[in-house]
Write a protein that binds this DNA or RNA. Structure first.
Lengths: 249, 249
DNA sequence: GAATAATAGTGCTAATATAGCATCAAATGT
DNA sequence: ACATTTGATGCTATATTAGCACTATTATTC
């Protein structure tokens, strides 16, 4: 399995345990339910003992917890990790005021998400009738190729990366994806500069390369609406970036 | 340096690289500014090359980023980690509606925090006049021994753990702490079941052992106010726990 | 500006941490 | 009840990694 890496230049001596350990951690978090070590090993296509050992260490660190029926769930340390990483990220705190403004301007649902493997993970997902506290952290991971957020983020990835990502686990991840069709779509998305999904949601990237993406969603986005919405999305995304920079001083 | 571990029973073969790698990551996140590998090695009391290698790996994974002046800051992967861990944690999403209610009831500042080493990291910190989006993720880490949240959380830790935590890095962490006096205070906190700091803030634990703690703060909390506030805090904390459990189905 | 000190990063290699096979007890499936 | 799968571990070969020594770069000192 090809692990997600960000720089094409590996350090002199990459630490494999750290790499595979964080992989296990994110897989555990994504499971959202108790998961056994062999099941996870099958999902990650890794030797069982290896995964069992890493899960054991995560439990030792408090990031995982063993259940009475010998499975693993996230542990108390996840709260520390989420608090610290949220504080280090600055993304949600920078985005929230601007999301509020965007919701008021458009009257639409607004979503802020990040891409993890082939899934979009929402930091925010809600519209005008939803309170902010209820909109923070959408519930389920969502398939990237069916999401405007996912598509705009995948579009900034290399063809090789996308191929690799989608040619593995095709059966496991809920249906087979025609990779060539996907790549064609991604080219279109890249050209347009926004992702459009089913004429119901429209996304632009935050940052370049994108660290996240911002979308509006409603029942039907008409062709005529797109340019203004894209402009508004870009302004909001750019504002988020500026605020993040300011928070980092 | 004694790494924070949650279970007294180590697994058969704990993975040291994962342990030290996550340590580096949290230290990087807590720095909040660019930090060099030697500086971090000094902070962590670890051999320099080791830390440099781990930071290099974190950069490879996108969790860190190398700056042009050869230092490290958090990288784009931190947004993925924060989104995923926040989603896996359920703490903030469960707490927000109840925090809103508590603010309305008390008219005070409410804070939700977790303990990382000797620091409190706030997931929420704000009062009635502050918008929710501005109150999410308080800015700075705060010394635990000067915080009601820190104290109530430390009070549930073993004497050995607290001793170990405070006897190292005394000079580095901004002043020497009288550990015996601290232990005496923690005993008092444990006995009372709440942490009180300077008569300005009052905290109770969320969960047992506590995963987080919840506090109210105002200019002056009188002795007479304490019982009702403690009751309200406990009700809120218990409600958060219930909501978290429900979100995990 | 030159000299000195500190830094990040790397090569190398000894050694130690770890991967994986085999095994066992416990849990699940038939 | 038996068969299968599971999580966890011991053991040990070996791959990964820790750390020494070094280099190029940057920062500090005079």
């Amino acid at each position: 399995m090809d692990e997600q890496t960000y720089t094409t230049r590996a350090p002199a001596q990459p630490n494999q345990s750290l790499q595979y350990g964080t992989e296990c951690l994110l897989q555990l978090v994504s499971a959202g339910r108790p998961i056994g070590s062999r099941e996870m090993a099958r999902e990650l296509k890794r030797e069982h003992t290896h995964v069992n050992r890493l899960l054991g260490t995560l439990a030792y660190l408090g990031l995982a917890e063993r259940t009475s029926d010998r499975k693993y769930i996230v542990g108390p340390g996840i709260h520390v990790l989420s608090a610290m990483s949220l504080r280090g990220s600055h993304l949600l705190t920078s985005a929230l005021p601007r999301i509020r403004t965007l919701i008021e301007k458009t009257g639409m649902i607004v979503a802020l998400g990040v891409l993890w493997r082939r899934q979009v993970c929402y930091l925010y997902h809600g519209g005008p009738e939803k309170s902010m506290e209820a909109a923070i952290v959408g519930s389920d991971l969502y398939p990237a190729e069916r999401s405007s957020i996912g598509m705009i983020m995948l579009a900034q990835r290399t063809k090789e990366y996308v191929k690799s990502l989608y040619q593995e686990q095709e059966k496991d991840m809920g249906g087979e994806i025609n990779v060539n069709a996907l790549l064609q779509q991604l080219l279109e998305v890249r050209t347009q500069g926004y992702g459009l999904n089913d004429n119901t949601s429209l996304a632009v990237a935050i940052g370049s390369p994108p660290m996240a993406a911002l979308a509006v969603a409603t029942d039907m986005i008409t062709k005529e609406e797109i340019p203004l919405l894209v402009k508004q999305l870009h302004e909001t995304a750019d504002g988020i970036l500026v605020d993040m920079k300011n928070l980092q001083k």
